[in-house]
Design a protein around this nucleic acid. Structure first.
Length: 585
RNA sequence: GGGGGCGUAGCUCAGUAGGAUAGAGCACCAGAUUCCUAAUCUGGGGGUCACAGGUUCAAAUCCUGUCGUCCUCACCA
């Protein structure tokens, strides 16, 4: 593939610098995780492409940055023509600015056209296995809106990784062991007793709500009042409750188009003895020791007693204190099963692990990363993406949620009210480590303050133009698009060129998002791209020559092909975000 | 008290892993539709990037401290 992209400038720069200093260049290639030197400018005074290379590396080359820039200029001067360079300038303290011929941007469109649906994606993963674990809410009740944010972010990260060459597994860790599940069983049992007119339990129940009632009914219908005749009635209740609730959760996730590949059971780790095996392994490695934890500071009012127990040395990995893996009764802690769970992931061959968590688990990050590092001798790592709270509003008034009274808004309720697209887009239209305010009224608003419709509208407008042209010419533009040969050489308005430059940033964006997991940037990019398109559209209102469909057939075809490519990037982006792209609105 | 997130325009927030004159939406003011979808666009005012130091040729961005705010804190999951 003889691709004409901004990549050729990065390669050229390496060539130039290699000729100047071989040893330095080899070191550079070895140590640098990213050999992108040129950035696309957003200020035309700085040319089309710019690099700060001379300033960045002047010191290690023991050179004056301007001198270094001059060497680069010499190197690029020699290939000016084939690199579409009109002018090269050194600016400021050592920026190297390239001014390109418009034909370069026209070639860029040809390149985008040849890739079409695959444009923007790069094989970074090279087939390696990635595991994205998200939602993982306890199966003790339906999902509330707070879970939704992490669910969507995880889903988009997984989609993106899949497109960038990773073999992705979307996983949900089901905490079907431990005290909260016992509470759930107890709550269901109490409801069942009511229905079966069996003498009631004495303690208050933790979980309540329609779903508890439904589970109890299910049990009553099956066993009438004879459930306790079954020797394993506790397990029967547990299995029934968990499968019922997981079904609710899956239904809700379905409403926002989220599907996991694997629901991994915590209880299965216990059943397969994986937890104790993993603990033994870490004891051998001396990462787990028998000892006492210090009492927590400033919590003297709590009556705590120090005792000896198994402790994971998470301070070796930057945690503040070491963490217990066994409880007083000898059973393992949640952390212990989580360590075993991650051992399981590693043994399944995943080289990339990503966990999406609520910000209330922030304090848990270091110990888990420490554990993964200990398990893999530093070979594996785990990315943890923390999501801050979602605050619900209705017309600027806060919507109260109380988990205790089961008085919270479920994902299903929200989606039923406003639809999947706005929910997904709004959840992605904020960086994950900042709190997010979600207003039912504003999210439904079909115009201002709602970026999702703004982006979709640009897409719909493009398809509207194409429909009009089809009708006038009695042809089908899109189905003939692959065969269409265009060189785009009549696109020379500054706003057209600016839009092409923005299109050529798309692959850079996706690459960065894979590295940082900042999926919100895809949403912002699409908004930005749509904005440029809308501006271009409106140019045609004032100036008939700037309309997409003109009296010049050749120009019209070029412009239609151009905006169709814009729509393809919007489509690719929205598809990654799991948002629809209707051709009519 | 320890740990972490956040602090950018009147409001809600972006800011491409340090770069050139800090951006967008909303709100406010003034305009654009006989014509491809006005769910759109154009122009205008609006900033000590919380504060103080430090590193650097270059800091909203990195480091230290202070203030404000939110989350979290032993064998809950």
């Amino acid at each position: 593939m003889s691709a004409i992209t901004t990549e050729i400038f990065n390669q050229k720069l390496l060539e130039v610098i290699l000729a100047h200093n071989k040893e330095f260049t080899e070191r550079l290639i070895e140590n640098s995780h990213n050999q992108t030197f040129f950035e696309i400018t957003n200020n035309s005074e700085h040319g089309d492409l710019t690099t700060n290379f001379a300033m960045m590396h002047a010191k290690s080359l023991k050179m004056n940055p301007i001198k270094l820039a001059e060497i680069l200029v010499d190197g690029f001067e020699k290939n000016k023509k084939e690199l579409f360079i009109k002018d090269i300038k050194i600016a400021g303290p050592g920026f190297l600015n390239l001014y390109l011929d418009e034909s370069f941007w026209h070639k860029t469109l040809v390149y985008i056209k040849s890739n079409l649906k695959g444009y923007g994606f790069e094989n970074i993963g090279n087939g390696s296995k990635a595991n994205v674990e998200y939602v993982s809410a306890n199966p003790t009740g339906p999902l509330h809106i707070g879970h939704c944010r992490g669910a969507i972010i995880g889903d988009v990260i997984a989609s993106l990784y899949g497109k960038m060459g990773f073999d992705v597994t979307r996983e949900y860790y089901v905490n079907d062991a431990g005290g909260q599940i016992e509470q759930l069983v107890y709550s269901v049992e109490s409801k069942y007793r009511e229905k079966a007119s069996i003498n009631p339990n004495e303690q208050d129940i933790t979980y309540d709500g329609q779903y508890i009632n439904d589970i109890a009914s299910e049990l009553f219908e099956k066993y009438r009042d004879l459930l306790f005749e079954e020797t394993n009635y506790n397990k029967i209740i547990k299995d029934c409750a968990i499968s019922h609730i997981l079904n609710l959760i899956k239904q809700d996730l379905n409403k926002v188009n989220i599907k996991h590949d694997i629901f991994f059971s915590e209880a299965s780790l216990l059943a397969n003895d994986e937890i104790s095996k993993t603990m033994e392994y870490l004891k051998e490695k001396k990462y787990i020791y028998w000892g006492k934890l210090p009492l927590p500071k400033n919590q003297e009012d709590i009556d705590l007693e120090q005792r000896e127990q198994d402790i994971f040395a998470s301070t070796m990995f930057g945690d503040d204190i070491d963490r217990a893996v066994s409880k007083e009764d000898g059973s393992h802690t949640y952390f212990a099963s989580d360590i075993a769970y991650h051992q399981n992931k590693i043994s399944r061959g995943f080289s990339k692990l990503v966990n999406i968590w609520g910000a209330d688990h922030a304090g848990y990050v270091k110990r888990l990363q420490g554990a993964v590092s200990a398990l893999s001798d530093g070979q594996a790592g785990v990315d943890v993406v923390l999501c801050q709270l979602v605050r619900l509003f209705r017309d600027d008034k806060p919507v109260k949620m109380s988990k205790r009274n089961n008085d919270y808004v479920t994902i299903g309720e929200v989606v039923d009210e406003v639809g999947s697209d706005p929910v997904r887009f709004m959840m992605l239209y904020r960086k994950s480590d900042a709190p997010l305010d979600f207003d039912f009224v504003k999210v439904c608003d079909k115009s201002k303050e709602n970026p999702v419709f703004y982006v979709q509208y640009a897409y719909a407008r493009i398809h509207s133009v194409i429909r009009n042209w089809n009708d006038e010419n009695n042809q089908d533009f899109i189905s003939n698009f692959n065969r269409l040969e265009v060189d785009f050489n009549m696109l020379n308005h500054s706003q057209e060129i600016a839009l092409i430059k923005k299109m050529s940033y798309f692959p850079v964006l996706l690459k960065n998002v894979v590295i940082t997991n900042d999926v919100h940037r895809i949403a912002y990019y699409l908004h930005d791209l749509a904005s440029d398109f809308h501006a271009l559209w409106n140019l045609g209102n004032d100036n008939e020559n700037m309309r997409f469909i003109t009296s010049d057939d050749k120009k019209t075809l070029q412009r239609l092909a151009f905006i169709y490519l814009v729509s393809q990037i919007i489509e690719t982006g929205l598809d990654l975000l799991g948002v629809s792209y209707p051709e009519r609105m």
